[in-house]
Amino acid sequence: MHINVFDHYHEQTTAVHRLDPRVKVVVVVLFILSNALLPDGVWLAYALMGLLIWLAARAANLSMGFLVKRSLIVLPFLLAAITIPFTLPGTTILTFHVGQHALSMSDAGLIRFISIMVRSWLSVLAAIGLTATTPFPDLLHALRHLHVPRVLIAIISFMYRYLFVLADEALRLLRARESRSARSLAGKGGGSIWWRAQVAGSMIGQLLLRSLERSDRVYNAMLARGYRGELLTMTTHEMTSRDWWVGATAVTLLLLIQVGGHTFL
């Protein structure tokens, strides 16, 4: 397995890719925040937010198809909000009959449901755009510059570094289980649920012990290379005037949409 197997970075050299990661992180976080702050049912404001994403995706040479496909990950969570149209009081627009019960859908509820859906979707698109145009190590570097505690960033970097190593280890354990588990063509696999859980639990316990031992070895190797509790990095990110301009423009646009959404859209 390759080290970057989990990264969704799309190798390109567009203007968006070259933008300082700090600018991208700040703009995306502000985008998500202003998304959350927009009231319900301001469709034009949502459309403008969507337009911003579309423009950024074009500039970054990312296909909308890719963004939309990845954004389907939030779909299951929509179930959490699906009851709103039926529970928020408002004018009834539709009534379903389930047996002898009647489910009535209110206009206010429907507007709120769709608003939540659209806002959540736009936020996810923005976050996907961020990871698709910024290599993950750069993203972490940006967070470090933005004063996220260093220890935390160092831990996440380490996790990222060893993700594929331990995923490989887990896949080997899974392969081993596959190859020692016979299954009759007709029936399903044997064993009680508790027995199966025990097998999986032993694998996880095994993986845990191996990981602990590995962290020991890693630590010793780091000590041997002069580690003193501080991670150093070779890449430096410098903010250029272009970065400032792009960031300022994006923030201004977000502010305008926000003000518009609250007053006249």
Partner: peptide, 15 residues
């Protein structure tokens, strides 16, 4: 702390 927590976080992910 850093190598220990980092590797164990990767373990949770793999687990």
């Amino acid at each position: 702390l850093v190598p220990l927590a980092g590797v164990m976080a990767a373990f949770i992910f793999a687990g």
